[in-house]
Design a binder for these strands. Structure first.
Lengths: 146, 146
DNA sequence: CTCCAATCACTTGCACACAATTCACTTGTG
DNA sequence: CACAAGTGAATTGTGTGCAAGTGATTGGAG
């Protein structure tokens, strides 16, 4: 047993996770292109399809995106007419994001994407469930530290 | 059962995978900063610690990085003195990348990183193994298509 | 009531990532 | 040998991502 064993690429757990994530986003590409969305924009829209109206703060927590990333994404979606951005009356610091009719209509066109992606990943129901549980567990553990 | 069920963020498998991957890279930050490496550069160095000398082509396949990403990374590592870039004599198109003594020395300082990261993720041995298998399976399935 | 600290959002700077294009070199074909 | 096809690498353009710093607003302590 050599002390460098853990540094071998083939023994890394992080690497396939990282590579899988990137490949996944790439595979979304063609589907999202039809809707004129990027993966990041798609995440934001998924929240809005459920919530209708949400503060930018909550949104950034839901999709785990920094304002540095989120702000340009929201501006883009706003100029595409899928959502509106306005300051809250009670608290002028808060930005309220609301889906428009046009944004709501995208939902129908996106309805087939999850099934298509499941197909592309090629895992069984049990495997999906296991992957889901493991990634959320690791995520929770990492986010709880500090 | 509503036809939009699959579009809910909480039912997405891709999202926690994506978020977990990003968070993981973020957690590497402090450790790699001590070595003056980024995560991408660390991946390249891991290959070189094992292989000593490798063509750019093989490298891009190992770490799953496009030349658009890899070329600047290799230039950076080269100017940091961790590797050398030279054209192959037999085939001038091929770029051969070789680790330097300085690059080899980084290995000792990196030896503790895998264990530290395992700690940070907070999974058991069995869970790591399961995550490893699942991500490689999905990756293989996605890469085999087309 | 007045600072003062905290919070929300934005901006800037750096580092990925990939698609698409271009260029150099090699190999196969006539 | 010449030229077409193919391959490896670099470049360009767009879109993330995060850290660090800035500015505006709010809520709390004295």
């Amino acid at each position: 047993m050599d002390k460098y064993e853990g540094l071998k690429l083939c023994n890394q757990v992080c690497f396939p996770l990282y590579a899988c994530s990137k490949e996944l986003v790439r595979q979304y590409g063609p589907y999202l292109k039809e809707l004129g969305l990027t993966y990041t924009q798609y995440l934001v829209m998924m929240v809005l399809w459920e919530r209708e109206s949400v503060s930018s703060r909550e949104l950034s927590q839901c999709v785990r995106l920094d304002y540095g990333t989120l702000t340009p994404v929201l501006k883009k979606l706003s100029s595409a007419g899928y959502l509106t951005r306005e300051r809250s009356q009670e608290d002028e610091r808060l930005l309220t994001v609301t889906v428009t009719e046009s944004g709501r209509q995208l939902r129908d066109r996106a309805a087939g994407i999850p099934a298509a992606m499941a197909e592309i990943m090629g895992l069984t129901q049990e495997e999906f469930a296991a992957l889901y549980a493991l990634t959320y567990k690791a995520l929770a553990h990492m986010e709880s530290e500090e």
